[in-house]
């Protein structure tokens, strides 16, 4: 089962190591991890996507909560969550297939962010699934390089993940 965790942490050096260390110690594989500062500059927010046994996940969440620098851990509800990821694909092109690539980019509402003589860079945001889908199509032309940010996620509606009182 896949879970998306939103984790608020103190914006200090070493915190990422503490968090990542816990996952590896429990044999828990991180599928993606994204981190950035929040509206409060003292607090960073991590979005970690993991898949694994629910019992182990419960342990990991409890262990995360024990870290002094972890302020809050929230296991986001799949149906109630907006998830986005950004990816860049460097794709091999020639005169013959350039327009075909452009069409795919249009359909996915992606963007061409760089044009070279023999390659293009396609930038796309969306859910993990959408990015997987466009990647599959672009593969046909030859992907030279891929970079993905990892998923960031937020509750729909009024619900928030905030430090609390």
């Amino acid at each position: 089962m896949k879970h998306t965790l939103a984790i608020l942490v103190e914006n200090k050096s070493g915190v990422l190591t503490r968090v990542a260390g816990l996952f590896s110690r429990r044999g828990f594989n991180i599928e993606s991890l994204a981190v950035g500062v929040t509206d409060n500059p003292e607090i960073s927010r991590m979005t970690i996507v993991v898949s694994g046994d629910d019992h182990v996940l419960e342990q990991v969440i409890k262990q995360l909560n024990k870290l002094i620098d972890v302020i809050r851990v929230s296991d986001l509800e799949p149906g109630e969550t907006i998830e986005r990821e950004l990816a860049l694909f460097k794709v091999k092109v020639d005169k013959g297939n350039r327009s075909e690539v452009m069409q795919i980019v249009d359909v996915f509402r992606a963007q061409i962010v760089d044009v070279g003589v023999k390659s293009l860079i396609v930038g796309v945001t969306g859910t993990n699934d959408k990015i997987d889908a466009i990647e599959k199509l672009l593969r046909g032309f030859g992907i030279v390089e891929v970079v993905r940010t990892g998923t960031v996620a937020m509750n729909r509606g009024a619900k928030t993940v905030k430090p609390g009182k």
Partner: peptide
Amino acid sequence: IDPAEISK
């Protein structure tokens, strides 16, 4: 005292 010990 440690919630992480429960059902570990």
